[in-house]
Amino acid sequence: MLFFRKNALKRLDIFTRHVRHRMHFDDDILSEQTKTRLDEVLIEAESLKKSSPELINKFLEDTPARLDKITPKKSFAAVREWVDILAVAFMVAFGIRALYLQPFKIPTSSMQPTLFGIHYVSKNTKTTVLPPPFDLFIQGMRKAKATVSEEGQLIPTGSGGFLLSKTYFNIGSQSYSLPGESPKVNEYAIKGRTYFEKGDVLCDGWLSTGDHLFVDRFSHHFTGLKRGDVTVFNTEGISYGGQLLSERGYYYIKRLIGLPGDTIRVKNNMVYIKPSGQKEEKPITDFNPAFKKIYSGKGGYHGHLNSPTATYLINEESTFTVPEDSYFMMGDNSANSLDGRYFGMVPRKNIVGRAFLVFWPFSRRWGIVDAKDPLDVPTTDRNTEMSMQ
């Protein structure tokens, strides 16, 4: 008798938990009248806990039909539940994006070779050739090939493309399209020309989509930023040459060079730092070993340069002292980087976060940002890419 009673009570407990779950799950769509009737069922179930197993089992046999009348089953109920679950998952994902991680695309070459922006790769320099669409999905490469079939004047006809941009133009009566925005196509194919002869090769290679990465928006609020961090910031209120940087691009990515109070100098292609309150300046490699690869002379790294056309650090005698609540940023490819030497400090409030993880393409740089040693080949050409940001 005791065994049958325990079994009946267990089934009754499962039943009441099911009803409460249903009421909680559908709380926003159940009417007050339906909720009241379900409460009555729960009260009746509670009152049976001291009753005989026969009465409990009779209640459990009769009540499902009663529940069906109170809350009729709806079509595609399982589908509706999955849709609700997916909706919550998307909300959580977007919450994570807003609070913790933000995707970011490298637009230019200013951080090469640590990170690569959108750039043209000729067929003579690409080492691994995959069939489409694998060259795009794996390497982030889009075929860029065009030969003029009829002489004539260049006539731009527009741009477009879903997710991946394309530029359209005519030469003579023939139409062409090449991957990339119009300025990038002009850089690697058109090259400022307006008239073409039959047989002219505009390009024969690939356009790289640039590194895509996640930015850690969270941790720097607790640990602070340090010299050497690859950092994303917005350009609100920052200007150079009378132009707001936000007109060129809202987000920039650079390496943090100077903290508040630091006095910065560049000499012999090396950054020197004198922290606030100290008398002597030291090579920046003394503050973070991550800088050593930038001065290695390998794999495309060539150190940091003075720039006679810049606003600050134009020569080895020039210095810049970082104001409070601000930072000083430079690109690793300082020969072709529009950075703190031109626009000065970056306010703390403009910081988005640290570059965290390259998620696409699947190149040598895939994975944790700035974790790779330079390629063991000497740097020979500082001017492989001439776009600045």
Results as ranks from 00 to 15, higher is better:
N7E: 00
L9D: 02
T16V: 12
R17T: 11
R17K: 15
H24C: 13
D27P: 04
D27A: 10
L30G: 05
E32F: 15
K35H: 08
R37A: 12
E44N: 07
K49L: 02
K50Q: 03
N57R: 00
T63W: 03
T63N: 03
P64L: 06
A65E: 09
K73Q: 11
K73W: 10
E81H: 12
W82T: 09
A87M: 14
V92K: 06
A93Y: 13
F94R: 13
A98P: 09
F104D: 00
K105H: 13
I106A: 04
I106L: 11
S110W: 01
L115I: 04
F116D: 01
F116M: 07
H119V: 03
Y120Q: 05
Y120P: 01
T125H: 14
L136M: 12
F137N: 12
G140E: 03
R142H: 07
A144Q: 01
E151C: 05
Q153K: 11
I155Y: 11
I155Q: 11
I155F: 14
T157H: 15
G160E: 11
N170T: 03
Y176G: 02
N186G: 10
I190S: 01
T194S: 12
G199C: 12
G199A: 15
L202V: 07
L202T: 00
C203I: 05
S208R: 02
S208W: 01
D211W: 07
F214C: 04
D216Y: 12
S219A: 11
S219R: 08
S219T: 08
T223I: 14
K226Y: 05
D229C: 09
V230A: 03
V232H: 03
F233E: 00
T235I: 03
E236W: 12
G237A: 10
L244S: 10
L245W: 02
Y250E: 07
Y250V: 11
I253R: 04
K254E: 00
R265P: 00
N268H: 14
N269F: 07
V271W: 02
Y272W: 15
Q278M: 12
K279D: 10
E280M: 05
E280A: 13
G297Q: 05
G297V: 04
Y301S: 01
N306L: 10
T311R: 06
Y312E: 06
Y312R: 07
I314C: 13
E317S: 13
E317V: 13
E317M: 14
T321F: 04
T321I: 03
V322L: 07
P323S: 07
E324N: 07
E324P: 02
D325L: 14
F328K: 01
G331C: 07
N333R: 04
F343S: 00
F343D: 01
G344H: 06
V346E: 00
F356W: 11
L357R: 09
F359D: 08
F362R: 10
S363H: 08
G367W: 15
D376M: 13
T380F: 04
R382G: 06
S387W: 09
Q389H: 10
